[in-house]
């Protein structure tokens, strides 16, 4: 057991003070930029933590968002989504997905968020937050253009 504990874990490339963008900044980004923005913000946190293992989670989240955009552009959507679109509305469904993803990503990095709060202050989220929102809006525009021309809508 001890040998495992006595294996070096740090390399010369280890950043001295990694801290994560706060959960509040992710919430704000999810409300203004939607699902793609909160995915990008969480990717930034994973990058800061060097957690490559999170990549499948982001791919699945992007897939869910793309499926929702496609379904909204090509009614009728499959049953659960159709119910959501007709009862909640397309925009609110998209916001709901963003906020749920935000909660999911927080759960993914929950321990790291707690550690980060205990050991150092969170970095300023303004520039990355605005950049994520702008990129997300661009991505939404591109996705709508692509999905509109696909499937004979």
């Amino acid at each position: 057991m001890r040998e495992h504990l006595l294996t070096p874990s740090l390399t010369a490339e280890t950043k001295p003070s990694v801290s994560l963008y706060s959960s509040n900044s992710s919430l704000a980004v999810s409300i203004f930029g939607g699902a793609p923005a909160v995915i990008m913000m969480s990717i930034l946190n994973s990058y800061r933590l060097k957690r490559l293992a999170d990549a499948p989670v982001y791919l699945a989240a992007l897939g869910a968002w793309a499926a929702m955009v496609y379904a909204a552009l090509h009614p009728p959507a499959p049953q659960p989504l159709d119910w959501l679109f007709s009862n909640v509305g397309v925009r609110s469904s998209s916001s709901l997905l963003a906020i749920l993803l935000c909660g999911g990503f927080y759960a993914l990095h929950r321990k790291q968020h707690r550690t980060s709060t205990m050991f150092q202050a969170a970095p300023s989220p303004w520039i990355p937050g605005i950049a994520c929102c702008l990129l997300a809006w661009g991505l939404k525009y591109i996705a709508v253009q692509i999905f509109s021309s696909v499937g004979g809508a």
Binding site: L5, S9, T14, Q112, S116, F119
Partner: peptide, 24 residues
Amino acid sequence: LYARYAMLMYRTFHIDKAKALARE
């Protein structure tokens, strides 16, 4: 010494290792 190493591991987000070191 284990405790000091645990604190270093917490700071660098090696949380499971840090907790094992703290227990030791």
